[in-house]
């Protein structure tokens, strides 16, 4: 797998360099490109769809650059695709964020607001006995429980902690696609797997050794 190319899709949103440098760290012999060029993305062996910020802006850029069509073609070719954070949310049916945003609808799921969830609103922080109300964004290191075995979980212990920062969470239609679950006031999907797609709410590139292991697994993943 040494001479493969991994494309990190650049649609102008967020810190793409940290994804690229984490990949370079775990796969030094791999060619990592950060690009919005259609042919470069389509000829890559693996593709990452990152993303931070508001989903309305992200989707606007994704559509402007023709990324929906690129992703359809990657799916047809069975190219491994890793979605990260808003990059994961963008693959769903729609999001409540930015006044309601239609997304790529590759996976049946709704992206919902923590703050507007009735159970979340009355939940208390269980991290110490002072039982504070929960803050939004959900920011920091939380545990991810493996719901299903997956090659992307190789050498990662069940309930390992990963770094999250998000105000909206994924509510999957078909729960069997959820391979990782986290809890913050409510249970929500932290990782989803569907055919050639693996997508995570957390940031593997910021999750120290567990995150680096996940990226390593992506480099080796045979769909």
């Amino acid at each position: 797998m040494s001479n493969q190319t991994i494309a990190v899709i650049d649609y102008g949103m967020g810190n793409l360099h940290s994804v690229a440098s984490a990949l370079e760290h775990v796969a030094p012999s791999t060619n990592i490109i950060v690009t919005s060029d259609v042919s470069a993305i389509l000829s890559a062996d693996r593709v990452i769809l990152p993303g931070v910020g508001a989903i309305g802006d992200c989707m606007a850029e994704i559509r402007r650059l023709g990324i929906p069509d690129i992703i359809q073609q990657l799916n047809a070719k069975n190219t491994p695709l890793l979605g990260i954070c808003v990059g994961m949310q963008a693959l769903m049916h729609s999001s409540e964020e930015s006044g309601g945003t239609p997304c790529l609808d590759l996976i049946g799921g709704q992206v919902k607001s923590f703050s507007r969830n009735a159970v979340f609103a009355v939940s208390r922080d269980e991290s110490c006995d002072s039982m504070e109300r929960l803050k939004v964004p959900h920011m920091g290191w939380n545990q991810v429980q493996h719901n299903n075995a997956h090659p992307m979980w190789v050498n990662i212990e069940n309930n390992s902690r990963f770094y999250f920062v998000h105000s909206y969470y994924l509510d999957l239609q078909d729960k069997s696609a959820g391979v990782g679950q986290a809890h913050y006031g409510i249970d929500f999907t932290a990782a989803v797997a569907f055919k050639n797609i693996f997508a995570v709410q957390f940031h593997p590139e910021k999750s120290h050794s567990n995150g680096l292991q996940l990226l390593k697994n992506f480099v080796n993943w045979q769909v």
Binding site: D125, E126, S127, C128, H138, G140, W141, N142, Q143, Q145, N159, R161, F164, A182, H183, Y184
Partner: peptide, 8 residues
């Protein structure tokens, strides 16, 4: 499985 308090 609560969120951890961060040390920075």
């Amino acid at each position: 499985m609560p969120l951890a308090k961060r040390i920075i």
